[in-house]
Structure formats: C-alpha cells, structure tokens
Design a protein around this nucleic acid. Sequence first.
DNA 1: CGCAATTATGTTATCGGTAACATAAAAATA
DNA 2: TATTTTTATGTTACCGATAACATAATTGCG
Lengths: 335, 335
Amino acid sequence: MSTILEVATRAGVSHATVTRYFRKPDLLAPVTYQRVKEAVEELNYVPNATARALFTGQTDIVSLIVPAITSSFFTEMADGAEDKAHELGYTLTLGTTDKDIERERTYLEALISHRVDGIIITPGTDSVEHIELLKRHKIPVVLVDRQIKDTHVDFVGGDSLDAGVLLTRHLIQQGFKDIAFVGGEPGAWSLKERLSGYRQVMQSAGLEERVYLGSYKPECGKKITTNLIQEDQLPEAILAASSRVILGIFNALREYQLRVPEDIALTCVDDVAPASIINPFLTVVEQPAYHIGQMAMQCLVNRIKGSTEPPDTHILPVELIVRRSSIKSERLHIS
Amino acid sequence: MSTILEVATRAGVSHATVTRYFRKPDLLAPVTYQRVKEAVEELNYVPNATARALFTGQTDIVSLIVPAITSSFFTEMADGAEDKAHELGYTLTLGTTDKDIERERTYLEALISHRVDGIIITPGTDSVEHIELLKRHKIPVVLVDRQIKDTHVDFVGGDSLDAGVLLTRHLIQQGFKDIAFVGGEPGAWSLKERLSGYRQVMQSAGLEERVYLGSYKPECGKKITTNLIQEDQLPEAILAASSRVILGIFNALREYQLRVPEDIALTCVDDVAPASIINPFLTVVEQPAYHIGQMAMQCLVNRIKGSTEPPDTHILPVELIVRRSSIKSERLHIS
DNA sequence: CGCAATTATGTTATCGGTAACATAAAAATA
DNA sequence: TATTTTTATGTTACCGATAACATAATTGCG
C-alpha cells in the first residue's frame, strides 16, 4: 500500500524518478535504477492504477456484457475474449443481463463511471439507446451476436442466416414436413436472421411455417413446448433458436415422457458444448464461439488504440453437425 | 465526459455542491437541487469513479479468479458470484488461470494495481505465496473450492470428502471391485479431500486402491485413460476427479470404441450441467455451485465492509445423482 | 580548456473527485 | 432587535500518479 513518494524517499530520489523507473527505465542511470529497484522491492510497491487512470484517462479495463454466462455460446465466447484481453494487457469485467431488464442499463452506467476503455456487448434489445449512450461518452463498443441497424459500430457474430438455412434444409432432407421454429428474442438480430433462414428454406420447399417466438431462455422453450403438447399440436420436428431454448424443450418433453427422436426430432443453434462430448446426441449448428470472442476483443482494442477504419462486420461461418436427435430413420427404426 | 466542475459552472454553484447532490442530496436547498439536476442531465454527467477511488481508496470492483470459466462448476459459480456482486453494487472482473502457469501471478498483480476491493480465487496451487501477497496489500480474499492450510482466510466450497465417499461407496454397492481414481491437481485441497474419501471407503471395503493423478484438465483424463487402455489395465470403474477430467476420459474411450457403462463404469465430481438435461447419463456428485458463488461473494463483501470475525469455512453439502453411466446391471444386461 | 550538447534528475501543475473546514444567510430564541 | 443556532454553500487540501518544463551534472568537441 505504499505510494510512489515513499518509494522515492526510500531510494533518495524524487517521485518523478520512480515514475521513470516504470515508464522509461532507460532514462535512468544504472545506479539510480538499482536504488529504485531495491526500494520498490523492499516496500512491495505496486503503482496505483487508479491514480494513473485519473491522469491518463485510460484504465486498461475492458468489459463484456452478455445475456447469460451459463449459455454455452457465451461461456466460450467469454473464454476467448478473456484470453485475448489478457494477451493484450487488459483486465476484463463481466456482466450478465437477462435475469433482469434493468440490469443492462445499470451495468453500462457503472462502466461509464469506471471509465472502462471499451465494451463488448450482446445487447438485450435492438434499440439504439444504449449504444448511443456509450457513443456520447466516447466509449468504443463492439457488438457480438446481435447487430443493431443504423448503428455504426463493429460487429462480430456467427452466420445466423446460414444457421437457419442449414438446420431447416437438413430437417427437410430427413423427410420432415411439419417443422416448427421455437424460441428466440424477437428483437434480436441473430433471431431475425435464423428465422429468416428458416423461412427461406420452408418457402422454397413449399412447406407451411410455424413460428413460436419468445426469448432465448430455457423457460421459453419449456412453455411453448408444453402448450403445443397440451393442444396436441406438436410438430414432427423443432428447430430451436438456441441451446438454452432447447433445454426447456427437453424438460417439457420429459414431463410428458416424449422421446427424441422417436416422438419428435430436435435441432438447435449452438452446441451444448460438453454435452456433445459425453453423449453426442443433438444435431446442431455450431458457431465458432471462442474465436468470435477473441475477434471481438481484438476489434475492440483496435478501436481503443485509435483505429478510425469504418465499422467492420465480421460474420463467421457456422457448421452443421448432424447427430441422432434429428434422424428420421432412427425414429422409424424404433417405432 | 464532462467533469464535476463543468456541471457546477453550468448550475451556477461550486463543485462541492455537485458532490453533495450525489452523496448527500438532502443537504441541498430544493432550488439548488433542481438546478444541479438539470445541469447533470444536460451534460450527461456521470461521476468519474476513477477520481473517487483515488480519494476514497475504494473502487467498488471485486474480482473472480478461476482455473477455467468453461468448466461447468466454475461457470455456475461465476454466475452466482456475479449476481451477488451486482446486487451489492459491485462490478466484477473475471480472470482464468489454468492455460498458463504465470497467469495467476500476472492477474493478481494487475488487480493489486487496480486496487480492487476484494478477490475470490480458486488458487492453482496450495502454496501460500499468492495469498500472502494479497494480505500484504490488505486485499480481502475468499478461497473457493480449494482451501490452503495455515492461511487464515474465508473458504467456501463443496464437501469434497463426502463427494469421494459417496461416489466410491456407490460404485462398490454396484458390485465393482477394481475402481480407479483418475485425475486432479495433486496440490489442490479439493483433490486431497476427494481422494481421501475414495481411500477411506476402499480401505474399509478391503479393496485395492488405484490412483492416477495429474490435473483437473481434460487432457489429463485422456492421457491416463489412453495409457490404461494401451497397457490393458483399464479398471472396471473410474471415479474422475472432475467433470473436465471425465471429458478427456470419454474422448479416449471413444477412440478405442469402448462403451459406457458396458465396458467401463464412469462417475465424476461436478455435474456437466446442461448435458444432464439433454441426456441424463452420467452418475455424478453435484455441488451447489451457484450457491457457492453467491456465498463467497457475500463473505467477501462482509470482509470489505470491515468484518473482523475469525475466518469462516463453509463446506456445503453435495448430492449423489445416480444415472446410467455407473449401473452394473445395465452392463450385465447388455453383455 | 571553455562552451554547447547531452544526460540525469528535480519541480510543479494536473487529472476529477471528496470531505473537512470556513463562512454567509436564514431561522429561532430571548 | 440582538444574539445564537441552524441551514446552505463555498474554499481548500488531498488522494497518487504523469509529463511538461526546468535545472544540474556530465560529456563532447573545437
């Protein structure tokens, strides 16, 4: 807890010399350097980043705001972002928003107050309000997973349109005709894209669309599925908007003792990471989540460092992974 | 980006009055309050936490350092910690350490420099060095999942001894005799406890112990299992030290096309959270990870607020969840 | 050998808040 | 109405760094 002044006194120099020891060491005479070094070590001195930040206006802190860290996509994304942040010398803060509608706002205000150098965010809504707020405070932003139109900021995400296309096409190829799209935040870009992919393929196949939106949360999947079961409207196959939605769907199906894929085929966007190692079961479209996190952080730091390039939109390719949950033959074979 | 002075000028008051507007609003005359309020709003003024921290010595930032955020236990723990931190008005930083041995140290130094108010950490080793470092800098610490002896700090974790006991006893009850303990960080408290639970039960059952340590990482599980297979030493059942280790075990088994539980029974500590919803398969001992996170954060904030109670050790009960991966009858039935 | 150029170090204002202290104005009391 | 008390606001030093600027010490070169 010692200050630069105490170090200076102990080393018999002025505090400016101690600053130089850290910031421009080669300006010091070897003897002086050594003396300061000893004083620093003896006092366990660590410069106060808070004081530095006040003067320089830079905190070396960046922030990540996601709906839910427990969603496997965001867990891996955060892992990538954190690794990159550390590599580049930044400390990362984490905030989650979807347990409470107010939380995104309170987090942003706290981050503005703390003068973080930049923010990576998956916004909860498609409103420009929060982005404008950050712009007013001149805090660089990178959007992940959900783009907001008319906002000139960098974006990094998976190809959600293609995700919708790949899964729908796959289900149709399996011979399913009654395919429902379940879950997803109506305002979210990723949802719109996934849905749009689903619609394109359904239309060109001449099939009737069935869309049940809500949110990306498990509860949404559970509620919609329960309703469908109770009204005896369960489709042949479901394309779930996300891996969290599908958890709710599984819960609902289990309550009614319905089996996958025997009674209904299931697919979703985003792999449920460790689950697929233990028991590869779900057909999914996988996004390069870790890579997205890294890339978003790199983009953000480029902005922080002053890049004035026009905003970039990085849409990374996704991959269809076919497993048992959507295989019709499996279904016929058993029943 | 405006400062308190600009607000003061605009409102026609001194900057002290603006501080009072935020910190002791009822000291202001209604007219003054209103004038300041307008100025604050017109300028989008947000107080600079960096400047405040310099004076008060408090940053309202707390930190979480874990081996790997992608491990389901830590994901949920982080979720709990983050919720509680937000509830109590703190911003949380996140750091992961097990990709690089140096990282725990660099993180701690950065956090000391930033003068975070407190740190929750799952230390990578059982050395007291890092804890002492934090103590020297008077930063409150709470340990999670791994206790360090002779360190007088709060601890919150699951009952790892009981975890070892429950799983081993279960396997023995299933009729297995050749049971190996695989994986785990030799220096970690949680490992020692789990191992000790295993040993107690094996000994009192008169069974021979087989212990293969290494780390908590997937690679460890994979390597050990591959070796065992190649040397034709595969046991009847494995108790994996953690959910990450078991991922590697699965990988190895799959490469040799061995099946669970037909060829070998598997169990581990920590559930692989979403996996068990999609496909309940693994027999595990589940720790109340979210609750542990919340509790650790509450403990930490109590310390920050000045609590001088003697260090607390919270060991929370764990729960055995029996599923197919360890059922012998299932195995006999098939073979 | 003397003066300029270079090198090493010190002095000082500054970042944007906070809170103790001082003071002026209004209200309460005698 | 004079005096004390209360209320509202202003002044100022300070937190711990940084960097521009100033100065002292050393070196180089003619």
